[in-house]
Nucleic acid binder design. Structure first.
Lengths: 132, 132
DNA sequence: CTCACACGCGGGCATATACCCGTATCTATG
DNA sequence: CATAGATACGGGTATATGCCCGCGTGTGAG
């Protein structure tokens, strides 16, 4: 008997669900990870990479690299503060526009999942995941 | 109000849980993704990369690259069949040994999650994830 | 004021993952 | 049998992610 591995199940679900959101966001040229990062930056801006990492539960270096991509896309910009160690970032105007456009697309993906699973099960799932 | 994004929650859970399993498996020098792949190869061997990909819900090229790593580690080996297009793989003896050693470690990680969440909630979670 | 230590990052290294294209091989049709 | 179309991969390209190391910057203890 093959014991199911919760971790593998979660990873698989993660991949699949990410694809749904990525597809939904494709028209604006960003993926879910970038969307998530943009939203966080908007909320926290101006924010250091370290703080972003802590808030998103991601390694600082990961944030650094991902922000670099957003920078290259012109969606974010660095701000120079007093502490010359910090790389503080905020959304560019383009970034704000993209995020605004992206939100309804993201909501559509949310609805897609809600429809497929049912709102109560989604809530249940969120609850369980939060306990991990 | 910040609507929680199920996808982001799943991704976060995936990262965190993967770390737990990766740490548990570290003593044998493999991570969860590799463990999962080795187990699948053992069950299906000799198996083509395409079939592995289908079984694991992963892109074929991803399987190819991941198997290459296992190959380099000496855990798997290629078998030449009649169809010269296929890259059929199976576990090496070392790979079998590593997998055998890894299983108890993996089980410990399973237990860790079970303890933290409770068996019933784990079952619930698996159920919900399967519906995605 | 200085210097040791803490802090914030970038870059190196490695894996995981996906998509696309080109090549090699097989197969089935004419 | 010859060739068009289907298959199976490998490699290129790009992102996401983590860990570790080294460098530059801040800061507080003496």
């Amino acid at each position: 008997m093959d014991q199911t591995c919760l971790c593998i199940a979660v990873r698989k679900a993660s991949r699949r669900m990410t694809t749904v959101y990525d597809d939904a966001l494709a028209p604006v040229g960003i993926n879910l990870a970038q969307y998530s990062l943009l939203k966080k930056i908007r909320r926290m801006a101006p924010v250091s990479l370290t703080d972003l990492g802590a808030a998103m539960d991601l390694d600082r270096s990961t944030i650094g690299r991902n922000v670099k991509v957003l920078d290259r896309m012109g969606l974010t910009q660095a701000i120079t503060g007093k502490d010359h160690r910090e790389a503080t970032v905020e959304l560019s105007e383009t970034g704000q526009g993209v995020l605004t456009t992206a939100i309804p697309l993201w909501e559509r993906a949310q609805e897609q999942i809600n429809t497929r699973l049912g709102a109560d099960k989604v809530a249940q799932l969120e609850q369980l995941l939060a306990e991990l």
